[in-house]
Design a protein around this nucleic acid. Sequence first.
DNA 1: TAGATTGTTAATCGATTAACAATC
DNA 2: TAGATTGTTAATCGATTAACAATC
Lengths: 211, 211
Amino acid sequence: MESREISRAVIKRLPRYYRYLGDLLDEKVDRISSNELSQKMHVTASQIRQDLNNFGGFGQQGYGYNVAFLHKEIGKILGLDVVHSMIIIGAGNLGQALANYGGFDRKGFRLEGIFDVNPDLKGKPVQDLKIQMVNSLPAFLKKNPVEIAILTLPRGSAQEMADILVQNGIRAIWNFAHVDLDTPENVIVENVHLSESLMTLSYNLSSRNPD
Amino acid sequence: MESREISRAVIKRLPRYYRYLGDLLDEKVDRISSNELSQKMHVTASQIRQDLNNFGGFGQQGYGYNVAFLHKEIGKILGLDVVHSMIIIGAGNLGQALANYGGFDRKGFRLEGIFDVNPDLKGKPVQDLKIQMVNSLPAFLKKNPVEIAILTLPRGSAQEMADILVQNGIRAIWNFAHVDLDTPENVIVENVHLSESLMTLSYNLSSRNPD
DNA sequence: TAGATTGTTAATCGATTAACAATC
DNA sequence: TAGATTGTTAATCGATTAACAATC
């Protein structure tokens, strides 16, 4: 779709712009300049303008940016204007917590199934779904093509499951398992390594010790 | 403690080194060169050597790095050699899921309490703890000094709670709420913005469309 | 029009990679 | 010793910031 390659650093900042613009929208703010926004977000105005101009000129000289318009445009860039189908693989604590979190649904991410290997969980209701067994996954995906798989599994079984998912047409994996998955180039993997995040916090706690 | 300032990019990579070294340790590998490790991790050997040398010379010319030693040293740098006390604020789906996750404990993060505002949850057992009311938090923290607070709250109440936590001596916040917290400079905030991670995935799904 | 603010080019800064002397 | 590989300096690359002409 895009011809130019946008740097990962820019992309990682887009959701934050989107959030601030959504807040401004709630506050009924019509327009904002890169300078005002930069003060709110604690980034440079220059960076905001550079970032946005990767995707086109959304502003107007002498005026700034129309909040509603910019919010909608960034939403489109992030693919939030279309519905994305998801399944959860691993109905443990985290898997069930994510399933029960309603927020994703509001942003256009629709949960279509939740799977586990544990037969004790078979049929257990989670939200408006029932936990299914992973051996029924291929048949399920044939009937219901799904874009995103959320992997909330122990690390030992994550790679094997990723292979199965890719074979069955999954195009993106939101990976919560503590491993780096090996997948074909056209499959998107977004990692959430919670323990690594906590270690980073721990580092700062130890090193920035003010004593 | 540290005099030189280490770049955030380097710090974010340390937990991943730590993980790979832990795996090598499990595989009974004694020594590894930066070149071998670089191939495993898909980074440059140069980056590994540069990163490690921010903290001192852990290797030996002609030999490489001793896996057990390097693993232990990085653990120390990350502050994993000491026990960190934590509380969870917000005993919703995510809060309870994190409480039930045993992995943090094994890495030296000890959960000492879990709190919520919802009176229906009062006394509910989670792991070996019982959910307490947030109004008892100041008294609790006076008796039990805690380093880290895990914020798993709706965004609306997160800032207010952060203020209370800081007032009562919390030194670090692991923030799962979808807001940027405003805290004093000496308080460490590590954000886990799950919805932003999912939006990044969504972006890649839309833009890298191979069709 | 004059003032404001963008879009964009140029300058700076920092992070990554390459190269190699030091040394085990 | 010769070979291997680090620690570290220098070169390159990319990202951020500054500056300003374009323009609403």
